[in-house]
Amino acid sequence: MNHVVLALVIAFITWYVATAMPMFLRWSCYLGGPLVGGFVCGILFGDITYGLEVGATIQLAYLGAIAVGGTLPSELAIAGYLGTALTMSAGLSAEAGLTVAVALGSLGLLCRNAYMTLNSIVVHKADQYAAEGNARMVRLMNQYGSQVVPFLCYFIPGFLAMYFGSQAIESLMAVIPAKVITALGVTGGLIPALGIGLLLTYVWDKRFLPYAFIGFFLVAYLNLSIMFIAILGACIAVLYMFAADRREDSK
């Protein structure tokens, strides 16, 4: 396959798997990115055995990776598809490919942070349409508005890496000040405060505010699982209901 076409195809697949693909396929194609990527690249490069070997080796490194609350320690679409493709186009061994993929995967977190942060803008646009009762535009925002930033963040670096080799990505990264990358990560940690803050003001009820503090400090101090906290909350709620009903009855 022509070098440019191949670079375009790999970049396209990387973006598509990372953010655009239907969710029911993402479980296999994203969480198993290297394994499936090895297969896909094997077909594209015309050497399935080589592709499977590279993919399986990279996948082993991510076997224990679990996305808790949607956060993974690595960008699996980039590690899986771009990583395998770069390894194969350089003709590296599967083990050498592993280091390429893992390095790319952690660089890929920058792409992830960028779109997870910037897609807030799309959500606010959708808020406006929701307030106008325009359901169709809400769906279009989710469908297409959501893909503007991811396409830029995945397709362009993916294409450059495939076209110029992985050094291109490294020199591109060298241009971006390290502080900017850190700041993006820091901001990504702050933004959930807005989503949760909005939710809290909607359900705001002064009488029950202490319960929010109980939940907060159970996690802050004891790092308890949300499951335990929900069970505890349910028990308190039942006790509260009985007490409230008794008060009703005695009146």
Partner: peptide, 12 residues
Amino acid sequence: IVSMIVIGALAA
């Protein structure tokens, strides 16, 4: 109540 306690935990 359940809602509040879960939101608090999510925040942390």
